[in-house]
């Protein structure tokens, strides 16, 4: 019963994080900032959902597979992000940068 409640919390929190990340890639102004929003959903959202599922399966082979899925996502996600950012920079995409006006404003 306690596990069920914990699972609920983890799954809902993970789902919400995913949606927030989805909003993020629409809200942020350019490609490089959207990359950060997508990174959010890749790490913590996946972790929370997989932990939530792992609590339901207990110590079984299913949990082992969940850990493996998480490890794969954790290893491949930064590589893909880096490759994307690098390709975008070499492809001539100028990142939208913030200069002195923000410092004066904040």
């Amino acid at each position: 019963m306690v596990l069920d409640i914990l699972s609920w919390i983890f799954l809902v929190a993970g789902g919400l994080l995913g949606i927030i990340g989805g909003i993020g890639i629409h809200r942020f102004p350019d490609f490089f900032t959207r990359l950060h929003a997508a990174g959010t959903t890749d790490t913590l959202c996946a972790a929370l959902i997989l932990i939530g599922l792992g609590l339901q399966s207990g110590l079984t082979l299913a949990s082992f597979k969940l850990v493996l899925i998480f490890a794969f996502i954790l290893f491949t996600s930064p590589t893909a992000s880096h490759a994307l950012a690098n390709a975008a920079l070499h492809g001539g995409l100028e990142p939208l940068l913030d200069d002195a006006e923000e410092e004066a404003g904040s």
Partner: peptide, 18 residues
């Protein structure tokens, strides 16, 4: 709870697709 999580993921996928 799985349905709720699946729905949330589907919404995220919809946003990504958009």
């Amino acid at each position: 709870m799985y349905t709720a999580a699946a729905l949330a993921i589907l919404i995220t996928m919809g946003l990504a697709l958009a």
